[in-house]
Structures are given as C-alpha cells and as structure tokens.
C-alpha cells in the first residue's frame, strides 16, 4: 500500500519529521528523561525526609542490599512472579473457553458480549474498593453464599495464604472479559474453510479446536498474553486497596514495595533501584513482545 509515488518524492523530506517532532520532544521530555533520571538515582543514597543530607553516590550498594539483604524484596519478587503466571494462565484458559462458548451461535450472545465490557470500564482501584467489601467476611455476600452451598469460606484478605490468590481472583474477574472478547474477535475473523474441511474429515470438536482454530488464533493470543503479563507485572492498585501488601508481606508486589520504599520510607535510591530492576525485566518482556507481535500490530 505504501508504494513510493512520483508525487511523494517531490515533497520536502522535512515534512514527515516535522509531523513527528512535537510528539518526539514530548516523549523525550516526559518519558525518556525521567527514566534516565530514575536510573541515575538508583546509584545514590538519598532520603528525602532528611533535607540536610545531600544525595550520596554509593555505587551498587542499593542493588546489593536489595538482592542480598532484603528478604522483603525477594518476597515481593516471588509474589510478582506468581501473580504474573497465575493471572495469565487462568485468564487465558478461561478466556478461550468462554470465547468458544460465545462462538456457538447462541441467542443473547450480543447482549452478553456487551455486558462483558463493563468490568473493563472500571478503574482497577474501583474494582479493588468494590471487592474489598465483596470479599469481606462481614460485609460481603460471597462467603455467605459459599457457606450456604457447603463450601469453605476462606478469609480472603485476612489469611496470608489467601491474600495473593485473592488478588489473582479479582484481577481475573476484571481482565478475563478482555481475553474473552479478544479471542472471540479472533475466532470470528478466522477463515472458515479449514474449519469446514476438518469437519468434513470427521474431526471432533476438540480436534477442530486444537489443530485448526488454536494455531490460527495463536498470534493474537500471544499478543494478548504478553500484554496481560506486562500489566500484571506492574500490579499496584489492587494491592493498595485490597490488602495493602498484607497480611505480613504476603501480597506485596514489586510495584507496591517500590512505592513503600520510595514514598513511605522516602528512600529514593533504593526505590529507584527497584524501579531499575523492574525496567530490566520489562525490557525482556518488550523484546519478546517485539519479536512476537510486530506482525500482529
């Protein structure tokens, strides 16, 4: 579509860059420079509450302390890893399953897909606020109903074993609709010929899904999985509102820990070191994302 025509070559070479320039300058000023600044700060010791003490260069001290002498950081890293894997796996499986159901040409699927958009409209912070009462033993209906049908009713937010799963659960509530609707859109845009050919060959519905539809869906699913993984890696709002990282540190994520170190203890250097390490992981995600997604987007 982008053939270079005669008309284009006449144009000033400057126009394309002029059109991009404001955006580039803005991105440089508000995205790139802060990231660089943050990286620099990771090598300093600086506590903001002590105005009289100037920032002091400490080399790798912040990193060494995080990686060798800070069990809370390691807990946060492990929690974050669990959160990423659990949310992505659960949401993908559920999302694909429900999308297949919605693709069955049932009635009301139109209304259903519209209603599925609603969780996506809510701020994660609002979702956190809402579930902090839904999951509460005294205010929420969930435990009452679980007990009514004879299931155990855990103390979702008050038990160190359940706090992180609760965050997974709530995140899953909010974001599974994204996976459903994205997969559904993918299913509907599939070419029907291979599916019908498989049908003629007598493939079961599982085989049709596994060997025909799934491979065709894979590219768009990969993008979705990576996007969810990156988002999940940054989880902050839900932790803040649901558990504030507790009980103990059982639901503290890296973002939340960075926030606590940087803005409750005002240890700017160590918080920047956490941010720096997070950015490194993030870059890995981005590299994978680029190699997988560049044809999809």
């Amino acid at each position: 579509m982008e053939r270079v025509t005669g008309a284009r070559t006449i144009e000033s070479r400057r126009v394309p860059w002029l059109m991009v320039l404001p955006a580039l300058l803005l991105v440089l000023a508000i995205n790139i420079i802060p990231l660089v600044y943050s990286t620099v700060l990771a090598f300093f010791q600086w506590n903001l509450t002590q105005a009289q003490v100037a920032p002091r260069f400490v080399g790798l001290d912040n990193f060494i302390r995080l990686l060798t002498r800070d069990p809370q950081f390691l807990t946060a890293a492990v929690n974050t890893a669990i959160l990423v894997v659990a949310t992505v796996v659960i949401q993908t499986v559920l999302g694909v399953a429900v999308a297949l159901l919605l693709d069955q040409k049932l009635r009301f699927t139109g209304v259903a897909t519209t209603l599925l958009l609603v969780p996506l409209a809510l701020a994660p912070a609002v979702v956190g606020l809402l579930f902090s009462s839904l999951l509460s033993g005294s205010l929420g209906p969930i435990n009452y109903w679980l007990e009514a049908i004879g299931l155990p009713a855990p103390s979702w937010l008050g038990d160190a074993h359940w706090a992180l799963p609760s965050i997974v659960l709530v995140d899953t509530w909010q974001w599974t609709p994204f996976m459903i609707l994205l997969t559904l859109a993918g299913l509907r845009s599939l070419s029907q010929e291979p599916v019908e050919a498989a049908l003629v060959d007598g493939a079961s519905s599982w085989q049709r899904f596994r060997y025909v539809k799934l491979p065709m869906l894979l590219p768009v699913l990969t993008v979705a999985v990576l996007l969810r993984a990156i988002d999940s890696f940054k989880t902050f709002d839900l932790v803040f509102l649901l558990t504030f990282g507790g009980p103990g540190t059982s639901s503290t994520t890296l973002s939340f820990y960075g926030y606590k170190v940087g803005l409750q203890a005002f240890d700017i250097g160590r918080a920047s070191a956490i941010a720096f390490l997070m950015v490194q992981v993030f870059i890995v995600f981005v590299v994978i994302f680029y190699s997988r997604a560049k044809d999809q987007l």
Binding site: S136, G137, S138, P154, S155, W156, L157, G158, D159, A160, T243, G246, P247, G248
Partner: peptide
C-alpha cells in the same frame, strides 16, 4: 480471633466487637 483478624485495623477490630 475472627477468621479475618489478620486484616484488622481500627474499624474492623472495633466493629467485630460492637457487632
């Protein structure tokens, strides 16, 4: 304590009592 006592700050803990 109540099953969710590890999630108790000020409001939850007095509320459990006064309820």
């Amino acid at each position: 304590g109540p099953s969710d006592i590890l999630n108790f700050e000020y409001v939850e803990s007095f509320d459990a009592f006064v309820q």
